[in-house]
Structures are given as C-alpha cells and as structure tokens.
C-alpha cells in the first residue's frame, strides 16, 4: 500500500488511459507525474481537466512525447504552451468534454453506470454524433463513462489503509477519479496510523485506493 512514487507508477503500461487529478496546479499529483516520466510508459491517453501548465507536471509529460491523446475540458490557458505546440503540430489528439460531463462520466465509470443522459451541450457543436432523447419535454445527450487503467490523484492526508482526506479546492477531481480507475495511486502530504482519521471526515474510503505515496509539502 505505502510505496515510493517510482514503485507506484510502475503499474502504468504503454497505451494506458491515465486519469490525472487537479484543477490547474491545485490537487495536481506532480511527484507521481515526474515518476511516470522517469518510468517511461508512452502512447498514453490522459484524462484531466486541463492539458498542463507551464513546463512541469502534466506539461512535462506531454513535452516528453508520452501522450497520444488528451481528454479534458479546458486545454487552452495562458501557460499551456506545451500542449498548444503539440496540438498545432498535429502531434496530439484532443477530446474536449464539458467539465461537468467530464466529472459525471468519471463518476458513472466508478459507480457502474452504463451511460447516462445529460442536458449539457444540447444544441452545440459538442452534440454532434451523440444520441439524443427528449425526457419530460427536455432534450438530453447520451454520455458514456470514462474509465481509467490508472488514476493519479493528490490528497492531503491518508491513513495506512488508504482512507483519504483532501484540502480545500485541491479536492476537485480526486474523489471521482479514485473510483473510476482499476488502480488508484494517491500522493499525500502525510500518512497517519489507522484509527487516527475521524471516519466522519474521510472523503475517499480506502476501498478505492490501491497505493499511497507520501510526499511531505
């Protein structure tokens, strides 16, 4: 359960779909991504809200040429020059998903939902090719789950079983991604003994967490 970042990401294989937590840099598991770059797996599909900021973290993984496709809601930011360059050079695929649909498609994967109807995107270019249905007079689009082979998330504190608590808005995609991957790896600032987290405040129960990596901040 408690491993080094290097050991934790050794499970990632070429061609895997990797869910990466974080909203901008808040909740971004930077040390796990650095370990993934070292590990060397390539041809990856990355699912994350953004497509990398600056030159570190996800941007560094992209720059290393390890990513075939990005699934995200907002790739275009003032400091997303790495993605911009790859995209304009035709060296990376992009699937843009509205942020709420991205979260709900991950949630559906973790909850065993086969597909669901969402009102988001009706009448927009993102509805093209999607099955639609009118329910109680309102139009919806059929959306499918997004499953990960591996999820890389950052939480605040874990106990030795893998129960997780988060900190402020760094929580963001962590709890849903933890449920949506075959293997979930959590980078945390601190690991505490079993029994020292109040069960009432645990956000991600240990059942969803396979490996924890302590990186003091």
């Amino acid at each position: 359960m408690i491993v080094s970042a290097e050991d934790a990401v050794s499970v990632v294989k070429d061609g895997d779909t990797v869910l990466v937590g974080g909203f901008g840099m808040a909740g971004m598991p930077v040390d796990l991504i650095d370990a993934l770059i070292e590990h060397g797996a390539g041809d990856l599909t990355i699912v994350s809200n953004n497509a990398g900021n600056g030159d570190t973290g996800l941007a560094a993984l992209l720059a290393a040429g390890r990513v075939r496709k990005v699934v995200c809601s907002f790739p275009r930011q003032s400091d997303s020059w790495v993605f911009d360059g790859l995209y304009r050079a035709g060296r990376i695929e992009l699937e843009v998903v509205p942020q709420g649909n991205l979260a709900e498609r991950l949630r559906a994967a973790g909850a065993g939902i086969g597909a669901f109807f969402s009102p988001t995107g009706v009448g927009t270019p993102l509805a093209e090719g999607k099955e639609s249905r009118v329910i109680d007079g309102r139009e919806y689009l059929l959306e499918y789950p997004i499953r990960g082979d591996v999820a890389l998330i950052r939480a605040h504190v874990a106990d030795r079983m893998g129960n997780l608590v988060y900190r402020k808005t760094a929580r963001n995609f962590g709890p849903v991604m933890a449920t949506a991957a075959a293997v979930t790896i959590a980078q945390v600032s601190r690991i505490v003994e079993v029994g020292s987290l109040d069960p009432e405040v645990v956000v991600t129960p240990a059942i969803y967490v396979n490996r924890i990596v302590e990186v003091p901040r």
Binding site: F74, Q77, R88, L94, V96, P98, Q99, N101, T120
Partner: peptide, 21 residues
C-alpha cells in the same frame, strides 16, 4: 466558448454546464 476560427484550440471548461444548469 468558441469563435469557430479554424486555428483556435477548442476549450469549453464549465460554460456549457453552467449555461443549462
């Protein structure tokens, strides 16, 4: 969210969810 310009990188964020929600 988009001017439809051919060279623009599409990015929608939460705008579509907020608009209908």
């Amino acid at each position: 969210w988009s001017t439809g310009a051919p060279d623009a990188i599409p990015a929608v964020g939460g705008a579509m969810d907020l608009a209908i929600g």
